[in-house]
Amino acid sequence: MDLERLDELFQQLNELTGVRDIAYHEIKDGRLSPVLKTNTDVLGVEKWRSVHAQSPVYVEHDKLLSEMMREPRALAVQDVKNDPRSADEFFLFGIDSILILPVLNNRVVRGIVAVASIGGLHEFTEEEIRKAELLLERYRSVFQT
Rank of each mutant, 00 (worst) to 15 (best):
M1A: 07
D2W: 06
D2N: 15
D2S: 15
L3N: 09
L6N: 14
E8V: 06
E8G: 05
L9Y: 05
Q11P: 01
Q11R: 14
Q11N: 12
Q11H: 11
Q12P: 08
Q12V: 07
L13V: 01
N14M: 08
N14E: 15
N14Q: 15
T17Y: 00
T17A: 01
V19P: 14
R20W: 04
R20A: 11
D21P: 02
I22R: 01
A23P: 01
A23L: 10
Y24L: 04
H25S: 07
H25F: 13
E26R: 09
I27F: 02
I27S: 06
K28L: 14
K28E: 15
G30M: 09
G30K: 08
L32T: 06
S33P: 02
P34D: 02
V35G: 03
T38E: 02
N39Q: 12
N39C: 04
N39S: 09
T40R: 02
L43V: 12
G44M: 05
G44Y: 11
V45R: 13
E46A: 10
E46S: 12
K47P: 14
K47C: 07
K47F: 09
W48E: 08
R49W: 08
R49K: 12
S50Y: 09
S50F: 04
V51N: 03
H52A: 04
H52L: 06
A53T: 12
Q54G: 04
S55N: 15
P56C: 03
P56D: 09
P56H: 01
V57N: 08
V59Q: 05
E60T: 08
E60C: 06
D62I: 04
D62Y: 06
L64H: 10
S66V: 08
S66I: 05
E67S: 12
M68P: 01
M69Q: 13
R70E: 13
R70D: 13
R70I: 04
L75E: 09
A76K: 00
A76N: 00
A76D: 00
V77D: 02
V77F: 01
Q78M: 11
Q78Y: 01
D79P: 02
D83L: 04
A87I: 03
A87Q: 05
A87D: 11
D88N: 11
F91H: 15
I95A: 13
I95E: 01
I95W: 02
I95T: 14
I95L: 06
D96I: 05
D96G: 08
D96Y: 03
S97V: 00
I98N: 07
I98P: 00
I98G: 03
L99I: 00
L99C: 00
I100V: 15
I100R: 14
I100G: 06
I100P: 00
I100N: 11
L101K: 08
P102A: 03
L104C: 10
N105D: 12
N105L: 09
R107D: 15
V108W: 05
V109H: 05
V109N: 10
R110M: 12
G111T: 11
I112A: 11
I112Y: 12
V113I: 15
A114I: 08
A114F: 03
A116V: 02
S117E: 00
G119L: 01
G120H: 12
L121S: 06
H122F: 00
E126A: 11
E126C: 01
E126K: 05
E127V: 05
I129F: 01
K131L: 10
L136D: 02
L136G: 07
E137I: 06
R138S: 13
R138P: 15
R140W: 08
R140I: 03
S141Q: 07
V142Q: 07
Q144K: 14
